[in-house]
């Protein structure tokens, strides 16, 4: 795909708050019809970046383009943003709030009313239409917030931790809605700490840490490029072999199995043979791909380590 087909282009964007640099020279592109996973630990600069994309704040340096235009009121109307910190008016009827949010996105009131009814029905909230927020459970409020994000049928959907507080049934339901949006060639940016969810949903990944890009690309290529020699092992005995530094880099003890990280050039077959020769009883021996979670932790830790080393010098 050529660069011109991307719906969002973030170009060398920097944002500072006083002496603190929240986002440092960050560049990336997002393509329509794909789910873009925007990942990073707390305080990495995710929310600041998202706020610049939706036009809440302006970058100090660099440029942000949506569909080839800089962010303005007309562009904002095509964005649906579900912030991580979100809320509803406490003492207001659900339908009234949704109407207001739709009006702020310039949706004609007749259209808004129709869509509100449709969405409430889909999310099984019809009977709550004329109730106040305080009457709703947390999960129901989440669903209402989601409706307010999609009422204007946005072309870009930005969801910051959309599943927190939802039960599994509703998570599945929302994933279904997201795939509908994706099928309509809309752009979805998805920010989360939950690597399992990200792994399942995202086609492309951007990992940032300490205001900077750490990793980016399609999930597939990242995983392949992250060719770590990992073995899941469930066995009795063989501890001596696992502590052989010429073969094994490190081990991670899980509940009922051990994840063995072999040295880069080591052959798993050699490990298996040596374990068998030592008389170890093996019930599981499996070559595994690194999970997104591993990559995340590895990158963020590595980053921190590199930093402490630099600071120590």
């Amino acid at each position: 795909m050529s660069a011109s087909s991307s719906s969002l282009r973030v170009d060398s964007v920097t944002k500072k708050f006083g002496d603190f640099t929240a986002v440092d020279d960050l560049s990336f592109e997002v393509r329509p019809g794909r789910v873009f996973g925007f990942l990073g630990p707390n305080g990495a600069g995710k929310t600041t970046t998202i706020r610049m994309i939706v036009g809440i704040t302006l970058p100090d340096e660099g440029r942000i383009e949506l569909w080839g235009r800089s962010v303005s009121g007309a562009v904002q109307e095509r964005i649906g943003y579900l912030p991580e910190e979100r809320g509803l008016y406490k003492k207001m009827k659900i339908a009234d709030q949704l109407r207001y949010f739709a009006a702020l996105k310039n949706v004609p009131s007749a259209v808004a009313n129709k869509r509100i009814d449709q969405w409430l029905e889909r999310l099984e909230l019809t009977e709550w239409k004329n109730r106040k927020t305080t009457d709703l459970s947390k999960g129901m409020q989440q669903k209402v917030q989601f409706i307010s994000t999609v009422l204007h049928d946005p072309d870009l959907l930005i969801l910051d931790e959309p599943f927190s507080g939802l039960d599994p049934v509703n998570v599945e339901f929302m994933i279904e809605v997201l795939s509908e949006f994706r099928a309509k060639e809309k752009t979805i940016i998805f920010s989360t700490h939950l690597m399992e969810t990200a792994e399942r949903l995202c086609h492309d990944i951007l990992l940032i840490n300490r205001a900077q890009k750490v990793l980016s690309g399609s999930l597939r290529s990242i995983k392949e490029g992250y060719g770590k020699n990992l073995i899941a092992l469930r066995a009795v005995g063989g501890e001596g072999i696992l502590s052989d530094r010429s073969l094994v880099g490190r081990i991670v003890q899980n509940a009922d199995e051990v994840v063995v990280e072999l040295n880069k050039d080591a052959d798993p077959q050699v490990l298996l043979k040596r374990l068998l020769d030592a008389g170890t009883v093996i019930s599981k021996f499996e070559k595994i791909e690194p999970s997104l979670n591993d990559i995340f932790i590895d990158q963020v830790r590595g980053d921190a380590k590199a930093r402490t080393e630099v600071e120590a010098e």
């Binding site: 036009g55 809440i56 904002q76 109307e77 943003y81 912030p83 910190e85 809320g87 949010f101 996105k105």
Partner: peptide, 17 residues
């Protein structure tokens, strides 16, 4: 304060100046 306390401001600011 209500819009700040309930974090509605964030949604509002992404829709209007």
């Amino acid at each position: 304060v209500e819009e700040k306390e309930t974090r509605i401001a964030e949604i509002l600011f992404s829709s209007a100046r």
